[in-house]
Simulated scan of single mutants.
Amino acid sequence: MRKLICFLSLVVIFSCKSQSKNIIIPTINNKFEKFDIKAFTENLIQDESFVLLKNADSIQQLQKQSYGFINRIFYHRNHFVLIKKFYHNYNLKEKGVLFNEGSPVGIWYHFDKSGKLIKEENTDEGYSFTPENVVKYCEKNKIELPEGYQKSGFHTQIIKEARNGKKVWVIKYLIPDGDIQMVVLDGQTGKEMERKTVPFVSS
Results as ranks from 00 to 15, higher is better:
M1V: 09
M1L: 12
R2M: 15
L4P: 00
I5K: 15
I5M: 11
I5D: 08
C6D: 12
F7I: 13
S9G: 14
F14M: 13
F14S: 07
F14Q: 06
S15N: 13
K17V: 14
K17W: 15
S20D: 14
I23S: 04
I23M: 02
I25M: 09
P26G: 05
P26S: 09
P26L: 11
T27A: 15
T27Y: 09
I28K: 06
I28T: 11
N29S: 11
N29I: 11
N29K: 10
N29R: 00
F32T: 14
F32L: 11
F35C: 08
I37N: 08
K38R: 13
K38I: 09
K38D: 07
A39R: 07
F40Y: 15
F40N: 05
F40C: 06
F40P: 04
T41R: 10
T41Y: 05
T41A: 06
N43R: 09
L44K: 15
L44F: 12
I45E: 12
I45W: 00
D47E: 07
D47A: 04
E48P: 01
S49T: 15
F50R: 00
F50I: 00
V51M: 09
L52I: 06
L53D: 03
K54G: 08
K54L: 13
K54Q: 14
S58P: 06
S58K: 06
I59Y: 02
Q60S: 07
Q60V: 02
Q60D: 06
Q60F: 07
Q61P: 01
L62A: 02
K64R: 14
Y67I: 10
Y67A: 13
G68E: 04
G68R: 13
F69S: 06
F69K: 04
I70F: 00
I70L: 00
R72S: 08
I73Q: 11
F74Y: 15
Y75V: 01
Y75Q: 05
Y75L: 05
Y75W: 03
H76D: 09
N78P: 02
F80A: 01
L82E: 12
I83C: 06
K84M: 09
Y87P: 14
Y87C: 10
H88L: 12
N89T: 09
N91S: 10
N91K: 10
K93T: 05
E94W: 01
K95W: 08
K95M: 12
K95A: 09
K95R: 13
F99E: 13
F99V: 12
E101L: 03
E101P: 01
G102S: 03
G102I: 05
G102M: 05
S103C: 08
P104R: 11
G106Y: 04
G106C: 03
I107W: 09
W108P: 05
W108Y: 09
Y109E: 07
H110F: 15
F111M: 13
F111P: 08
F111T: 09
K113G: 06
S114L: 11
G115P: 10
K116R: 05
K116D: 05
I118V: 13
K119W: 04
K119G: 00
N122F: 03
T123P: 01
T123L: 02
D124T: 01
D124P: 01
D124I: 01
E125R: 10
S128Y: 04
S128F: 03
F129V: 02
F129K: 01
T130R: 03
T130D: 03
P131Q: 02
P131T: 01
E132C: 00
E132M: 02
E132D: 11
V135E: 04
K136Y: 03
Y137Q: 01
Y137A: 02
N141T: 00
I143Y: 01
P146I: 11
G148W: 02
G148L: 05
